[in-house]
Design a protein around this nucleic acid. Sequence first.
DNA 1: TATGAATGAGTGTTCATTCAT
DNA 2: TATGAATGAACACTCATTCAT
Lengths: 231, 231, 231, 231
Amino acid sequence: MSEAYTSPRKRTARRPPADTVGTPAQARELRAQGRKTMRKLLDASMRVFAERGFHAARVDDIVRAARTSHGTFYLYFANKEDLLRALALECAQDLDALAVGLGPITPDRAGAAQLRQFLDAFFSTYRRYGPVIRAWMEGRVDDREAQRLGLHAFTDIATALGRRMHEAGAPSDHTSVAALMALLERSAYFLVSRRVEVDNDTLLDTMTCVVHRGFFAAPLLGQPGRPRVDR
Amino acid sequence: MSEAYTSPRKRTARRPPADTVGTPAQARELRAQGRKTMRKLLDASMRVFAERGFHAARVDDIVRAARTSHGTFYLYFANKEDLLRALALECAQDLDALAVGLGPITPDRAGAAQLRQFLDAFFSTYRRYGPVIRAWMEGRVDDREAQRLGLHAFTDIATALGRRMHEAGAPSDHTSVAALMALLERSAYFLVSRRVEVDNDTLLDTMTCVVHRGFFAAPLLGQPGRPRVDR
Amino acid sequence: MSEAYTSPRKRTARRPPADTVGTPAQARELRAQGRKTMRKLLDASMRVFAERGFHAARVDDIVRAARTSHGTFYLYFANKEDLLRALALECAQDLDALAVGLGPITPDRAGAAQLRQFLDAFFSTYRRYGPVIRAWMEGRVDDREAQRLGLHAFTDIATALGRRMHEAGAPSDHTSVAALMALLERSAYFLVSRRVEVDNDTLLDTMTCVVHRGFFAAPLLGQPGRPRVDR
Amino acid sequence: MSEAYTSPRKRTARRPPADTVGTPAQARELRAQGRKTMRKLLDASMRVFAERGFHAARVDDIVRAARTSHGTFYLYFANKEDLLRALALECAQDLDALAVGLGPITPDRAGAAQLRQFLDAFFSTYRRYGPVIRAWMEGRVDDREAQRLGLHAFTDIATALGRRMHEAGAPSDHTSVAALMALLERSAYFLVSRRVEVDNDTLLDTMTCVVHRGFFAAPLLGQPGRPRVDR
DNA sequence: TATGAATGAGTGTTCATTCAT
DNA sequence: TATGAATGAACACTCATTCAT
């Protein structure tokens, strides 16, 4: 999953003259300045998406945030979806790393620690790429490629988790893994969107405990730092 | 929460601010035919929202689905947000009933059964009102009232669940309950949206088990019907 | 009153209230071409307003007259009201100049000449900005700013006239001045709208005579060029 | 000008079957109740027009004000213009009476009194029918008949005034009379619309004086009640 | 005679995308 | 490589008028 993003400028519908059609993602070679501008756009878009969400975000918002122009935007991306695709690639790489780095989740405190670390990393990625992930989830993305990337990345993580669940002797069928993914995604959303009042550490503790017991068949451990306080 | 929806045939003396309007409900009394048409619109909109999502849905889609005209739509609703508000009210009532009907979740099979039944009902409601709930979640709803309703309904359920968690001796702090809500909502979404391949019964079994253990501190019960199969 | 109009390319963070918007002027710096297009729109709108009146004029009429597109219009003006505001500013500046240039109206022929010159200038301005002035008069303009400008401009002229009436020893109370303004505005309207058959010179003569005698306490002068013909 | 208004129901464009076409204003004979309803609509419309103006007024506003229904409106009037025509007829009759009742305007106090009385009556009529008159003035009325009525009524008054001006030895050419009409109409508008602060009596005094001197060649009379105060 | 419901053409406004410089 | 200007299809909403009861 280390394909590099290649700007698909000129992959638009109307394509009349003898051009490099057929070779869809025919990126121009970018020089230093070009790379910098593209980076500016990618970063700006993440900020805008975080605030408004992908669909509500306007190209205008993005270029303003990136302190550049409309024309420039379309110099680097074929359209908004194409930008999403580029972000999706970065995000998928991040998630991929997560999947690769996930060690065994034993029923003891070591397993809990491993799990916590994974969750922490997941939340971190979500903080950055949440809007992209949600765009996948919402399923209103027309772009096949972006969809595929999202699916792929999620499947990778799901597979990794499923394997660890299996090792732990817990049910690791498709549905169980899906439920875990559901919990992960939405908890991260709550955390990041601030729609629900949760703070990072408390959520990490809670999730570690819940997931360990609920999905990895761990016994109830008196976990340190886990406040057993009722609300 | 049994406030009835009153069609906002407002008389925005001058400019109707194009948004949620100030005078939300100055409903004409509807006769039989009027009620029928309104119902048609509400039902059609649910179908359209289910397919396209609230934001992507066009008023035009709705009226086409309801086999009525554009003008008629605005005879019953001030705008799309107002329609959402009406649906939100119905949804909130459904969710409210769920909260009220939730019995104690004991650690034994009876508790599991109770839980399963609740989940079943929740999924059912989600099947119908999912788009409305997601509109709340996405937080891009401008309408204050609809937001309030959504928050209120979710808080009600969360409170009921929290109480049962507390009774069960499990952590029932704010964060734990939030995590449970996250799991419920997104699982239902996966189920309903068909974005992930899960079938109703399997998900019910899985969720019952996971939630029972993860959130209600139940021991691992050899639950009947729970396939221990790995994928 | 030399505030320059600044195109209201506002960034109504969320909903643009469909009306006068809060952030009226966050103008982009316009380049030569931009200025030209804006001018084209302003001029075209004057032509359209002259023909249809402000309220009846459609944005579509304006852009057609300006040989540009719908989108372009909204690139320069937030809406029709905003365009009116821009025109109002120009008009107010014109009227202001009139007020400043008004010399003393003595009871002799010199006074009559001065008056005639003023009336001529007033009619001239009215020929250009009549529709704007009438939009003020009709009082159906929602835009506060445009209203303020109109009121201000009229007050300026009224004040100047009042002072000259006072000097001339004629009644210069509020009501008298108002009556004079009424006469000026409506005569100009008759002249410009061609609703009543009057030609410019005849009207100038008539008005000079009538106003001189009626509002500036002048004696009946045998004014040259004044046809004493009955109709 | 004492033609009675006959509801032109069925003078609409589409007119397929063997109906009383050709006889355009084929009013149904109205019974007592019908007359009452029609009156209700006429009165309500005047109220609404006074508040919003003819063009901005919605049929919906009118029927609400008249506490009746849309359907009923179109039972009595072919459309909004048709309603205007009916009001125009009433108004024209009022104005007609004014024209007929206008006595000679002598240069002395008796003439001033006569003039004052006329102005008072004119303002009175304007208070009631101002919106109708303005609809004529604005010239945006499609209806030929209503236009004709308006023109006719104004011409009648203008003729009567012109005659009296002639008798008084003042210029009574077309343009002079037009200027007087301009002054009358707009003053009345200022008075009624409250766009300018003038009160009835003061305006009457001022107008009497100004018109007497300006249009009827009267000398400066120390008119009683005329405050010579500057503002 | 009266009514509330229904209709759809008309209008304002937005915004992704293309163009000329 | 960068930019601001231009475009027009798409969409929300209004309201005069007609219809069925």
